[in-house]
Each structure stands twice: as structure tokens, then as C-alpha cells.
Simulated scan of single mutants.
Amino acid sequence: MNIAVLVDSFKGSLSSLEAGNIIKDSILEINDKENIKVMPVADGGEGMVESLADLKGASETELVVKDPLLRNIKAKYIILDNKNIHPEKVAIIEMSAAAGITLISDSLSPMEASTYGVGDIIIDALDRGVKSFIVGIGGSATNDGGVGMLTRLGVDFLNDKGKKIHPSALGIKELDKIDISNMDSRLNDCKFAVACDVTNPLTGPNGSAHVFGPQKGASPKQVEEINDLHCKLYEKTREIINDADSEYPGSGAAGGLGYAFKNYLDAELSSGIKIILDLLKAEDIIRETDIVITGEGRLDKQSAYGKTPIGVAKLAKKYGKTVIAFSGVASNEAEVVNEEGIDAFFPIIGEVIELKEAMDKEVARENLRRCVKQVFRLIYKIK
């Protein structure tokens, strides 16, 4: 049989490639004649860089950037240089590396938090000759509408005295004029694919401030204020970009960072797993397989909303393939994934153990190996 293995990382224990190779080796222990292709995948959320770091031609880059409160921190991203995957160098970036909520979890600042550091990473990639970008924008601490990132990229957000505003939602209070004439000209030749698995607009009751602001520390009063500031940003943007769209699905992602990417950088906003599967040309592999194996650390009802296993399953079902998923654990509501294309899923944990022990790399490795072997013993018996 031809078997394709596309599993996300089992966060905290196994990387995407490690898990995939364990599955491959376990099947080959039973039948060494199988043709098995393993591809590391991710859904664009936190952990994307780690999951894809094992791709052939990927190199990790570390640099000093500004965190959400404009303090110096180190951040990492990947440059993928493999012409068999993509004709150009590709920067794979997580915005959370520079502007993530975990970076300031003990000092949330919904008005002052900035995406400036995301711009730091983009500039570094430009300096290294990158023209194609994949950016995951999950897990943000910010509500700045992308003003911070755009400021770093050369856009001037000015007050009525011609001075630059603070690169945050707070700064938008003073915003009088936007000038894009100094934006880094190299961006004109760049393409941005933004992994965005929410469809919220920038403003309104379903917009960034109302839906995501509270989890970033915004009080009810601040939620209304941030929404008004996003409306102001939109109106000021319309003065220089006539077709600016605050309603485009995903504009409200990451505190409005999706809006900045779409309107200022002409980015494609789409499902993270779709972007990654397209990058890896996974459809060509899946088309020729008999069984597709996917999975992630935890399967639950949230898995049905744009997570890796469902993205893989939907593509596999386009060609009528059998889909099996393995997971560290599965919640009582995980059966919803069966309605989304996964024919059967198997949690790998056997006996009851502590979470810390279950996430130990060697324990997870053995649990996954044992589970895969038992599933395929059954498959071969039935065949």
C-alpha cells in the first residue's frame, strides 16, 4: 500500500516529524514492503515553526526583536530554501514569537501592546533575500490593528503635529494622517500568505475588540474604546487606500493584524493548514495513497475548526481515501471529527498515568508505537 503520514506535533513531547517517523517505523515493523511518505505539517497556530523546522532545506534564524511592550527579546523563525517545495526562499513566521500573549501573560496591556516586533522579523527576512512569507497570526497579545508592524515596515502614522504616534492602539487615539510613501519598497515584490482560522471582521459586535479583546485583558470600557479606534484606523486607511476593507473575513484576527496584512500588504488570508498543504504539494501525494494518517496531541471538538487533522482529512476525502488519526488524548466530544472526514481515531495512552509522564518524549514514543502497531495488525488481518 501507499501510505501518507501528515501529523501535527504532539505539543510538549513529539515534533511533527518525530511523530510521523514513529508511525512509519511502527508500520514497517509489521510489513516492511509498504511505501510510506512522511510530511511534517502544522495548522498555522503556535508551534508552526517548530513543526516545520524539520523540512528539508529549512534553517532556523534567531534575532532580537521588540516584544509587545517594546522590550528586547529573542525570536525565531524559519527560512525554507528548497526549490523542490517552493521556487523561492520562504520565511515561515509565527507572530506570537514577537507579539504573543504568553510573552506578557503577567502584564497584559490591551492598549499599549504592539506588533512592532513582527515587523522586525519581516525586515530581517527581507535583508536575507526572502520574497515569500507564510505568517501564522494566532496567540496575539495585541489590539493595534497592525500599526506596530506597519510602523516597523516604514509606514508613518502621524498625529496632527506630524509626529509619529505610539505603535499601539493607544497611539491610534492621536492618529491624524497615514503616509505609506516610506514603506520598505522591497515589500512590493513580496507575497504574504497569512494563516488565519477566524473569520471575524475588524470592527463591530463580531469584530476584533469585542470577540478577542477580553482575553487580552481589555475591560468592557476598553473593548468599546478599542473598537472605536479600529473604526478610526479604517477611516484613515480609506483616505490612502480607497478599497480598504474592514469586513474581509479574518481582518479582526490578532487584534486587527489580519486587516493590516490584507490592506497594506495584499496578503492572502486563509486556513493555516490549507496554506501548509499547498506549500508541501500534499495533494499530489495524497492523490496516490491508499491510507492517509493524521493526528495531533489532543483531539476534541475544537479540532473540527481548522486544525491539522481536519484539513488533512478534507483533502483526503476529495479523493475518497481512508483516513486514520492518532492523538495523545481524545475528549468525550472528539467524535465530531468523524463527521469531518476522519474515519477512525485512536488515542495512544493506555493505562492511567500522570500528565507529566504521558508527555515524556520516550513514553509518548512508546505509546504511539504500540497503538499504531495494534491498529495495523487489525488492518492487515481484515485485508
Rank of each mutant, 00 (worst) to 15 (best):
K191L: 13
C190S: 12
L126A: 07
S327I: 07
S13N: 08
F212V: 01
M1H: 11
G47E: 04
V38K: 03
S185K: 14
K191N: 13
V118A: 13
D290A: 10
V90P: 09
L126K: 08
R370P: 01
F133K: 00
D124A: 10
N263R: 08
H86P: 04
S13C: 12
I348D: 03
I30Q: 09
G311K: 04
G207L: 09
G295F: 08
I123E: 15
K373H: 02
E18P: 06
E224R: 14
F10R: 06
A334D: 06
D245E: 09
T61R: 14
E362L: 11
P205M: 10
S59Y: 12
T237K: 03
V49F: 08
I137S: 09
C231Y: 13
L257R: 03
D120K: 08
T294N: 10
I349V: 15
V147Q: 04
L17I: 10
I78E: 06
G207C: 02
P201I: 01
S270H: 00
S26D: 07
E225F: 07
S9V: 00
I85G: 05
G204N: 04
A125G: 09
M1C: 10
K11Y: 05
C190R: 00
N338Y: 10
L299V: 11
V41A: 05
G204Q: 05
D278S: 11
G139V: 09
I92T: 00
G272Y: 04
V38Y: 02
S51N: 03
G204H: 01
G171C: 07
G44Q: 01
S270F: 08
D144P: 04
A19L: 08
P205G: 00
L28C: 06
G148D: 09
Y234A: 10
G217Y: 12
V38Q: 01
K33W: 02
P68C: 03
V198C: 04
A125E: 11
D197F: 06
A244T: 00
K236I: 02
Y305F: 15
L277V: 04
E340A: 13
I379E: 15
D243I: 10
K317Y: 06
K356W: 08
S59F: 12
I73N: 04
I104N: 01
T115N: 04
G250P: 01
D176F: 14
V130Y: 09
E351T: 12
I93Q: 05
A325C: 09
T237G: 04
N263G: 07
A113P: 09
F192S: 03
K356T: 13
E340C: 15
G258E: 03
I310F: 04
L126R: 09
A244G: 04
S246E: 14
T289F: 03
T237E: 05
A19T: 06
T308W: 03
T102C: 06
G57H: 08
L187H: 06
T61P: 00
T289V: 14
I348H: 06
L378G: 13
